[in-house]
């Protein structure tokens, strides 16, 4: 554990709670892509199956359970409890376009040809692109509410901070995980456009609007 990794995890937890709290307190899932949330739930379920056979630390276990339960709760709120407020008409990104390539990539790049390792690789690749339905939705509606922007900023920062953590671990421990690093860089690049808009608009008190 190092400071970058810890800050990354804090940012990740913050993102998850910002989203849950926003939906719960406004009693609305407007502007949130249910498809992205389903993809994140698949990511956590596929990656954290090792909960059943590998124990790393209490911290690790608690965080895994937290991400699984929070993402399931988010999906439940969007598709069941506040279904009437969910903006399905604008949430039209075809998730098979990210599911199938992630699965194919997992079969090509993995650390061993076992079910759990393939699921782990798949989850890493899928996580990198799981936000695309949400970004697509923001582009389609042309704007995002400020809390949605804060959520996206925290979620994007998490992987960017992990990149610093990987650089640090490479120099201090010689640890290098090429699958996570490559996917993590792609994931962070996907947020760059949004980071720019966030800094130039949302932080200056304006609403995030995308030009058509």
């Amino acid at each position: 554990m190092n400071l970058f990794r810890l800050m990354g995890d804090v940012s990740h937890v913050l993102a998850v709670f910002i989203l849950l709290a926003k939906i719960w307190r406004t009693r609305s899932a407007a502007g949130i892509s249910g498809r992205s949330q389903i993809l994140f739930t698949i990511v956590y379920l596929a990656r954290y199956m090792d909960l059943f056979f590998s124990f790393i630390s209490l911290y690790n276990t608690v965080m895994k359970l937290l991400f699984i339960s929070a993402s399931c709760a988010t999906v439940y709120l969007i598709y069941f409890k506040f279904r009437a407020t969910y903006d399905g008409n604008h949430d039209t990104f075809r998730i098979e376009f990210v599911l199938v390539p992630s699965l194919l990539l997992a079969f090509i790049f993995h650390y061993s040809m076992s079910f759990f390792e393939l699921a782990w690789s798949f989850s890493i690749f899928l996580e990198a692109v799981a936000i695309l339905p949400q970004l697509f939705m923001v582009t389609k509606t042309g704007e995002a509410e400020n809390i949605t922007s804060h959520y996206l900023f925290a979620l994007g920062s998490y992987r960017a901070l992990y990149i610093l953590n990987w650089i640090y671990r490479y120099y201090t421990e010689g640890h290098f995980d090429p699958i996570a690093v490559c996917a993590g860089i792609v994931q962070t690049i996907l947020y760059c456009d949004f980071f720019y808009l966030y800094v130039t608009k949302v932080l200056q008190g304006r609403k995030l609007q995308v030009l058509p």
């Binding site: 590998s54 790393i56 690790n60 650390y111 782990w120 995980d177 996570a180």
Partner: peptide
Amino acid sequence: AIDPAAHDEL
């Protein structure tokens, strides 16, 4: 090198 069983990150 990576030990496949040691995914210690989230």
